Simulated scan of single mutants.
Amino acid sequence: MTRASGIGSLPGEDAHEAARVVLGELPDLPHLPELPARGALADLTGRAVAVVSDLGFDLQPAGWRLTDAAGVDHRRARSLLAQDLDAFEEESQGFTGTLKVQVAGPWTLAATVEKPRGDKVLSDHGARRDLAQALAEGVRTHLADVARRVPGAELVLQVDEPALPAVLAARVPTASGFGRHRSVTPPVASEALEWVLDAADDRLTVVHCCDAEVPVGLLRSAGAGAVSVDVATLAVTAYDELATVLDEGGTALLGVLPATGSAAPSVKAAVERTMRLLDMLGLDPAEVSDRLVLTPACGLAGATPAYARAVLAALRGAAEALT
Rank of each mutant, 00 (worst) to 15 (best):
R3Y: 13
A4Y: 15
I7W: 08
G8C: 13
L10I: 08
G12V: 10
G12Y: 09
H16N: 00
H16S: 11
A18C: 11
L29A: 09
L32P: 02
L32T: 07
E34D: 03
E34C: 01
A37W: 00
G39C: 05
A42S: 13
V52T: 05
S53N: 13
L55Q: 03
D58Q: 13
P61H: 12
P61G: 06
G63F: 08
W64H: 02
A70R: 02
A82E: 15
Q83G: 10
E90A: 13
E91G: 02
E91Q: 13
Q93V: 14
L99I: 10
A104H: 04
G105Y: 06
W107M: 04
T108H: 00
K115G: 11
K115H: 11
R117H: 13
L122P: 06
D124W: 08
A132G: 12
Q133E: 13
E137G: 15
V139W: 10
A147R: 08
R148V: 07
R149W: 04
R149V: 03
V156M: 12
E161L: 04
P162I: 05
A166F: 07
A170N: 01
R171S: 14
A175V: 10
F178K: 06
D201Y: 11
L204M: 13
V207R: 00
V207D: 01
E213V: 09
P215N: 12
R220K: 11
S221A: 10
S221D: 06
A222H: 10
A224L: 10
A224E: 01
A226E: 03
S228L: 08
D230S: 07
V231I: 11
L242C: 07
T251D: 07
L253F: 15
L253I: 10
G255D: 01
L257F: 03
A269T: 14
E272H: 00
R273A: 09
R273M: 10
M275D: 09
R276M: 04
L281M: 03
D284W: 03
E287P: 00
E287M: 08
D290H: 11
T295N: 03
L300M: 06
T304S: 15
Y307M: 04
A313R: 14
R316Y: 08
G317L: 05
A319E: 10
E320R: 14
T323V: 00
